[in-house]
Amino acid sequence: MIDKPAVTSALSILGLFALWVVAATLSAFPQILPQPWALLEPFQREIANGKLPYHLGATLLRVIWAFCLAMAFGVALGLAMGRSERLNRWLDPWLVIFLNLPALVLIVLCYLWIGLNETAAIVAVTLNKIPNVATFIREGARALSPDLDAMAQVYRMSWMARLRHVTLPQLAPYIAGAARAGVAVIWKIVLVVEFLGRSSGIGFQIHLYFQLFDVRMVLVYSLSFIVVMLAVEWLLLQPWERRVRRWRTA
C-alpha cells in the first residue's frame, strides 16, 4: 500500500521545486536566481575540492556541541524550576529576560567579552537556547506524578534509577519537543555566529559569497546544510522519539 502522508510530502517538495524553476525562468537573471540544475556543477566542485565537507563539518560540530550543552543545562534547570516553586520564583524573571534577549545581542556580547573564538561561538548559541529548553522541561516537571514519586521513595529506588526510570520517561515528550525545536533554532543561530565572527563553517561561506554577490554559492552551501539537518531529523530524532513512545502504542 502507498504511504499517503509520504506521497503528500514528496508532492509538496516537488511543488516547491517547480515554483523555483518557474521563478528562475521568469527572472531571466541567472546571477540573481539560478535554475536548480545550475547548482549541480558548483556543488560537485565544492565537494571535490573538499571545501563543502570541511565547512559542513565545522558547522555540524558547533551545532552538536551547542545542542548537547543547551539540552543538558536546560533539562537540569527546567527540572529544578519545575520541582521547586521557590527556585522558580527566583529564576523566572531571569528566564523571561533571556527569552526576550535577541540572539544577536548575546552573540555580539559573547564575542566582545570572551573573544573571537570557538568558546564564545558555542557559549553564545548555548545561552540562546537554554531558556527555551528550560521552559519546555519546566512544564513537564510540573506535570510529574506525585504518586510515582512516593512509590519510588517507599521502594527506596536509587537517585539514578529514579531519574532514569521514573523522571526522564515522564519528561520524554517534553525533551523530544525541546530537542526538535532546539535543533531547528540552534543551527540557524550557529550560522549567524559564523557569519559574524568565525573563519569556517556554512555561515562563514555564506558571508564570503554574500560579499562576492554569488547567489549560486550561497544556495549551494545553505541547501547542503538544510539537507543535513533534515537527515538528522528523520534519521536520528524521529526514530528516537518512536522508540521512547513504544510503550504508548504497544
Partner: peptide, 17 residues
C-alpha cells in the same frame, strides 16, 4: 523497618517499563 512496600489506591506502575 528498612524494607517497606506500598500499595496505592491506583496501581501506580511505571507504564514505560
Amino acid at each position: 523497618p528498612e524494607a517497606m512496600a506500598i500499595v496505592f489506591q491506583e496501581p501506580t506502575l511505571l507504564p514505560w517499563r
